[in-house]
């Protein structure tokens, strides 16, 4: 099914769900200011459903918005791509959201386009898929009430860790220099944290300036402390949507660090992909007697 047909169906389903009273709001994407932007929209009236779009730039992961509606009793319909659906499961597993209050319309996803490159191109020019989408293993929603189209073929079967391995092969000094350079660029806007569906602490330690854990001064050391704490906190919970990298205004390769942790988790606790199901617990969310503990 082509994008336009999917879009037509999106609008139609949104209208039906709102008109029937099955849900009171629908979360989707609408056209952004420029052709390489789509932006989240919250629809309450059926006549607004025609604002919904489905195109190459519907990157934003809508699952995280459900946290804003934790304390309402309204039922929300939302459109989820493969990665977004893993995010949904993650939030469900953390008991942050309630399944009964949602209606998921899954969209098997052919991948989004590189929005940064797009800014230097003209509308209609050929664009590669966004980096994160090129290696997508789960383009099909893993949890849904209905699917909008037939499922698509995953673009990769196994995780490609070659970029992580390239960093691992550096000497400790080279590695330090690499990350030092990247984190010097960080402006500490916290967009990576705020967009992340694995970041759902009620109060983040980086929002407690008076606690003394982290200082507000922006330098390589404080920035690295932030970046690494963030990465470690989501170890075993990153669902590889790549939103952190997508939103970073400083172009820091944040997923590289997340992938290193995915690799380490796989190595220590066996292959694990966060958010595929809500059964069981994430590797760092429980313990087994034979867990590796070489540091003890």
């Amino acid at each position: 099914m082509n994008q336009e047909a999917i879009q037509t169906k999106m609008r139609q389903r949104a209208k039906e769900l709102l008109n029937s009273g099955a849900v009171t709001m629908v979360l989707g994407w609408e056209a952004g200011t420029f052709w390489y932007q789509s932006t989240p929209i919250l629809i309450r009236q059926a006549e607004d459903a025609d604002k919904l779009v489905w195109n190459d730039f519907c990157q934003n992961n809508l699952s995280k918005y459900l946290l804003d509606f934790r304390f309402t009793n309204e039922k929300i319909a939302l459109f989820l791509k493969g990665c977004d659906s893993r995010a949904f499961n993650r939030l469900l597993q953390d008991k942050q959201i309630e399944r009964e209050k949602t209606y998921i319309i899954g969209i098997p996803c052919e991948g989004m386009k590189d929005h940064r490159l797009a800014q230097s191109k003209n509308e209609g020019d050929d664009l590669p898929l966004a980096k994160i989408c090129q290696s997508c293993r789960y383009p099909n929603p893993v949890i849904y009430d209905e699917l909008l189209t037939e499922e698509v073929t995953p673009r990769q079967k196994i995780v490609d860790f070659s970029d992580v391995e390239a960093i691992e092969q550096m000497s400790a000094d080279e590695r330090y220099e690499f990350w030092q350079k990247e984190h010097t660029k960080c402006i500490r806007c916290y967009a990576c944290r705020n967009v992340c569906p694995a970041c759902n602490c009620r109060k983040c330690i980086f929002d407690q300036a008076t606690s003394g854990w982290n200082s507000k001064d922006v330098n390589a050391s404080e920035n690295q402390f932030y970046a690494m704490t963030r990465a470690i906190h989501i170890a075993g919970r990153c669902i590889e949507c790549g939103q952190c990298e997508y939103v970073c205004p400083a172009n820091i390769p944040i997923m590289l660090m997340n992938k290193k942790l995915i690799k380490d988790i796989d190595l220590l606790f066996g292959d694990y992909d966060a958010g595929l199901s809500i059964e069981g617990q994430p590797p760092l969310g429980h313990f087994e007697k034979d867990d590796p503990e070489e540091f003890m």
Binding site: I41, Y65, D68, I187, C189, Y190, R193
Partner: peptide
């Protein structure tokens, strides 16, 4: 307001 992430990108740039 609905879609705002509450990040500092706008203000810092």
């Amino acid at each position: 307001m609905f879609k705002c992430l509450g990040c500092g990108t706008c203000t810092y740039l």
